[in-house]
Design a protein around this nucleic acid. Structure first.
Length: 737
DNA sequence: GTCGTCCCGGGTTCC
DNA sequence: CCGGGACGAC
């Protein structure tokens, strides 16, 4: 194998070879993932069987990339290696040893949504008086469990602890009854396996080398797991950067990384401080921002790349002007520096900020994609269909039953379900079984009509279960569910606004199932498909950065790099975004987030802030972000005001940063307000005026009563004779004469 | 049982 | 401004 030119000889020796605990403290852009991959390849080269190697990453995406690289380096020899997220790894182990913790190998995985719904139902049963959100209860449950405590034995310090104490046993019982685990259980059950008399030692001896990427993101449970997996040989290699710890709010423990050498006194420690990604200027800016943090391993990133364009700071009037500036900047750099759209990333602190940006990009016909937001598999229509699947696989899945029994509406309402529930509880059977009993005539007080409707549902499920027995492809089953339940048909008729999108999503679900079938071949199992759905957060595995601008949160950008990065919304209260009760630690995390954002950029970083920003229908005036103040003056070019949106000037001479002050914000808006929308606007009112006749695919011809919004998303209120008044998005109708 | 209206609350999000 | 949940009217 070719030695990595990026490592000096002692580093190479330490990182690529050798046994025992190893910690690699690697700065942003130092090629840490590549180093990790090379170490794995070296291990295989030296005779470690690939199936005895476990590599854990933080995201599916990172796992996929690592697998790809390993395949390139090792070819067939990469087969059988365990490369995946903690959750995927634990799911795999748990399927094998399910019986040891009271599950069957078909267990289901509950996502956040399922968990919240279940807790909400339990809170209702408990008749909890004060307003307590399921979210709050769940986070206490998780906190206790992760600390190794039983939430059901919580010492009540306040009312909510008391609620948690009562709710948790019910929650755990419901999961067990449905043969399900939540995300946290997935790991905790494997911790239980580690203590199991037979399975524990087996797991400890299963892998010869354990490697963990992004170690600063691991929580205590995950750390416990890898310690167990490596306790016989101590071959635990962790790679991470404490400056990039941005998941503290969900239990990540950067101490796992920082104290690694305390837990493993014999650990070798390698620091990788050379950055191969960014220009000197960008790195200086990032270093200056992170230097203000107290709680960190001091590390000084350096680079061979000299100079670079100054970091540009742009003050904008409001979020629309900001979006406009970004769009205009992309056009400018596209022509002046011959950049493709795929070279650009636009980052923001929260998803809500994407809207104005999208509008500005759309107005200029710049292709973009938004990463994250609501993930594909979380969409309502997708969730509905997968819950059908779950009920079909497991007739005990009561939560699935409750979700789909009246979806699409088939006249089975709360009253009917309440009766079924009462009957089920009395008889000690699952809801589906109880429903079957009611259809067969069990006297639970259902009227004839309700009984008939319930029968339709039970027959639907039983028909689909019979189909499963014939061993169909997953895609076939999914599309049968969509058809037989009349889900698609009802969407088409009843949901004129979102229906077409939803129907398209269902099509994509069938396509995803078909891809799964193709991949899994003969052995495609429904359980595995459902697992894939639960463990896959985003559907954009297509790796489709392609030729479009990428919009995403800073969190989503971790691990990625782009030639040009726009970092938007640098305002106090937006970024850093702090809430009441947040402390210094939270501010340090915000600062790390800024560090991550800046270090994504290879050639150019362009920072923007808006003097006023509209949020929740309120216009807020924010001070410029403190992070701007921290930027080193000689690395930055500030343009405080500009007359109108103009292309970014390519080679602006650096000048001292002028720290923006509050007086700026008091200035009156200039008369020459920028033009936000370049095309289409205004035309729609002419194309779809009140009183105009339009044709819709399903409802036929109707008359426009009202319109709101603009562009292809303009909403029209239309009266269709025979169908009543519907609100429909303009692109789904055409003007008639 | 379903549909409309009102009110509330609204970070980041991997798995 | 948005969506979801709760509640009252057909």
């Amino acid at each position: 194998m070719t030695p990595d030119p990026n490592l000096n000889p002692p580093q190479r020796e330490a990182v690529l070879h050798g046994a025992g605990p190893l910690m690699v403290l690697a700065g942003a852009g130092s090629g840490k993932t590549r180093v990790l991959t090379q170490r794995i390849a070296t291990l295989v080269d030296r005779g470690v069987p690939s199936y005895r190697i476990l590599a854990v990453t933080f995201t599916n995406k990172a796992a996929g990339e690592m697998r790809e690289r390993l395949h390139k380096l090792l070819g067939e020899r990469a087969q059988g290696m365990w490369v995946g997220t903690f959750h995927a790894t634990c799911a795999r182990l748990l399927r094998v040893h399910a019986a040891a913790v009271g599950l069957t190998r078909d267990f289901a995985i509950f996502d956040d949504d399922d968990q919240k719904k279940l807790v909400a139902a339990i809170l209702k049963e408990l008749d909890v008086s004060e307003r307590i959100t399921p979210r709050a209860v769940l986070s206490r449950i998780d906190r206790a469990r992760n600390a190794g405590d039983d939430p059901g034995a919580l010492r009540s310090r306040d009312y909510i602890d008391d609620v948690v104490r009562r709710a948790f046993p019910l929650y755990a019982a419901r999961l067990l009854k449905e043969n399900a685990v939540d995300f946290n259980d997935l790991l905790l059950k494997v911790v239980d396996l580690c203590h199991h008399a037979e399975v524990g030692p087996e797991l400890a001896g299963r892998f010869r080398h354990v490697l963990v990427d992004e170690f600063q993101d691991t929580n205590l449970v995950q750390y416990r797991l890898v310690k167990h997996f490596s306790k016989e040989h101590g071959n635990l290699c962790v790679v991470g950067d404490d400056d990039q710890s941005i998941y503290g709010w969900r239990g990540a423990e950067p101490r796992n990384l920082l104290d690694f050498d305390r837990d493993f006194p014999t650990a070798r420690v390698v620091k990788l401080e050379q950055n191969y990604r960014s220009t000197r200027v960008i790195l200086d800016a990032a270093n200056a921002v992170i230097a203000k943090n107290v709680d960190r391993h001091a590390k000084a990133l350096w680079t061979d790349r000299r100079g670079g364009e100054p970091v540009l700071v742009e003050e904008c009037m409001d979020e629309r002007a900001e979006a406009d500036f970004v769009a205009q900047g992309i056009l400018g750099l596209r022509s002046q520096e011959h950049r493709g759209d795929g070279d650009f990333a636009v980052l923001y602190r929260t998803h809500a900020q994407s809207r104005a940006l999208e509008e500005a990009l759309r107005a200029r016909r710049i292709r973009y994609r938004v990463v994250g937001g609501i993930s594909f598999f979380q969409r309502r229509e997708i969730k509905d269909i997968t819950e059908y699947l779950r009920l079909i696989v497991n007739p005990q899945a009561d939560t699935a039953f409750e979700r789909v029994v009246n979806v699409p509406t088939r006249g089975i309402g709360d009253t009917t379900v309440d009766k079924i529930r009462a009957y089920a509880r009395g008889a000690g059977v699952p809801l589906l079984e109880a429903a079957r009993g009611a259809v067969a005539g069990a006297p639970i007080g259902l009227g004839a009509a309700a009984q008939r409707k319930l029968q339709t549902f039970v027959e639907l499920i039983d028909g689909l279960r019979a189909l499963v027995a014939a061993g169909p492809a997953v895609a076939t089953l999914v599309s049968e569910i969509i058809d037989r339940s009349e889900y698609r048909a009802r969407l088409e008729i009843e949901d004129a606004v979102d229906g077409p999108d939803r129907v398209r999503n269902l099509g994509e679900l069938v396509a995803a199932a078909a891809a799964f079938d193709a991949e899994a071949g003969e052995h495609a199992s429904l359980t595995e498909f459902l697992e894939r759905v639960s463990l896959t957060a985003s559907a954009d595995d297509k790796d489709g950065r392609g030729e479009c601008v990428t919009l995403m949160t800073i969190h989503a950008a971790k691990g990625l790099e782009f030639p040009v990065v726009f970092l938007t919304g640098l305002e106090e209260g937006v970024f850093p975004a702090l809430r009441e009760g947040d402390g210094d630690d939270d501010m340090e995390e915000e600062r790390r987030l800024a560090y991550v954002a800046l270090t994504r950029a290879k050639d150019r970083a362009i920072l923007t802030y808006a003097r006023t920003r509209r949020s929740y229908d309120q216009i807020r005036r924010n001070a410029p972000s403190r992070f701007l103040v921290d930027l080193p003056p000689d690395a930055v070019a500030v343009r405080a005001r500009r007359p109108a949106p103009a292309p970014v000037r390519p080679a602006m001479a650096p000048r001292p940063a002028r720290v923006p002050d509050y007086d700026d914000a008091e200035r009156a808006p200039a008369a020459d307000e920028p033009v936000y929308y370049l095309d289409d606007e205004g035309e729609d009112d002419a194309v779809f005026p009140r009183g105009a006749l339009v044709r819709h695919r399903i409802f036929g011809v109707g008359e426009i009563e009202q319109g709101s919004g603009r562009g292809p998303d303009r909403k029209l209120t239309i009266r269709f004779p025979g169908h009543g008044v519907k609100t429909i998005v303009a692109r789904f109708v055409e003007r008639v004469a």
